[in-house]
């Protein structure tokens, strides 16, 4: 099982007396996993631990069964698109990818073929022979991505990969991530832009001040937060009438008529009981158009767990 997972066993990392991450235990399955948290929450530290660029002060990390202290085998199955924005001097985009493949041990011709394939995958053919130093932020992000995927890794670690990309390229890049995930690979993406995470991830790891505060599928995480009743939007006819019916149930704690008068915002302590109740109501004399949770996104969950202020930081 652990041969297909990224495993952190009680990992702590301290920079002198400064905490990087503390007591992290994770077992991350394949698919798109987002690492979410504000700046300084420990996302990059966790990624650098995963790639062996940092060594844990305590605990151990392995990626698909390979310890992070074995870079030769680790990076055969892993590509890392870092946040570091410095490049070997004088390199063109092509040099950047090609030299990496040569370092990986590929023959010159094979390295050339793979380099062009990766460059094409991120749509950088036209700029590939230009110096990286003259690239825009978005182009640098894409060429780093090309390097990370060039040797066809099973695990892709991407630190804020959508930073600096224009909307069109952003959409293309997200589609690329989905392609990777559907091929059964790991994609671990860090982001502090929460709505971005909602779009792309299968599961999330929420971090704050060096601690993992929650992990798993975002809906499951939301359901575990009992302090905050779930908010559900119902689009229906006769909302006032429906509101009075809903108040008959103990698990419903608040009902508001929506500002446009075309529905209700309901807060419930039990999502399961609520949906059972709605099944009965929907078969009765109300026309229900939509029933949708409004606070099971990463933003809300993070706000409930960490505090709204930090979530928007």
């Amino acid at each position: 099982m652990s041969d297909s997972r990224i495993v952190f066993e009680n990992v702590s990392k301290f920079y002198g007396e400064v905490l990087g991450v503390n007591r992290v235990s994770l077992s991350i399955p394949p698919g798109i996993t987002s690492l979410v948290g504000p700046n300084g929450s420990g996302k990059t530290t966790l990624m650098n631990l995963m790639t062996g660029l940092l060594r844990p002060t305590r605990g151990s990390v392995s990626v698909c069964g390979v310890p992070t202290s074995d870079p030769e085998n680790l990076f055969k199955l892993m590509g890392y698109c870092t946040q570091f924005d410095s490049y070997p001097k004088g390199f063109t985009g092509y040099d950047f990818v090609h030299s990496f493949l040569r370092l990986a041990g590929y023959e010159a011709r094979e390295a050339e073929r793979l380099a062009w394939a990766a460059i094409e995958r991120v749509g950088m053919q036209d700029a590939a022979k230009r110096k990286v130093a003259g690239y825009s932020k978005g182009m640098r992000q894409r060429i780093k991505l090309a390097q990370a995927v060039s040797h066809d890794p099973r695990v892709l670690i991407l630190d804020e990969p959508l930073n600096g990309l224009d909307p069109l390229v952003r959409a293309e890049t997200i589609a690329l991530f989905r392609d990777f995930a559907t091929e059964g690979r790991h994609l671990l993406i860090s982001s502090h832009v929460l709505h971005e995470v909602d779009i792309i991830s299968d599961q999330v790891i929420l971090m704050s001040s060096g601690y993992v505060v929650a992990e798993g599928q975002i809906k499951a995480v939301r359901e575990e937060i009992e302090d905050h009743p779930m908010q559900i939007l119902i689009r229906c006819d006769r909302p006032q009438r429906l509101a009075s019916r809903l108040f008959e149930h103990d698990h419903v704690v608040e009902v508001k008529v929506h500002a446009d008068g075309q529905g209700l915002l309901v807060k419930t302590r039990s999502a399961d009981q609520f949906y059972l109740m709605m099944n009965r109501i929907a078969t009765g004399d109300f026309r229900i158009d939509t029933v949708a949770p409004v606070d099971d996104d990463v933003n809300s969950v993070y706000g409930y767990l960490i505090g709204a202020e930090e979530a928007t930081r």
């Binding site: 790639t51 870079p71 680790l74 990076f75 055969k76 070997p88 370092l103």
Partner: peptide, 11 residues
């Protein structure tokens, strides 16, 4: 800040 170029390769 360019040493990671080597340390991220399978070498």
């Amino acid at each position: 800040k360019s040493l990671h170029y080597y340390f991220l390769a399978p070498i």
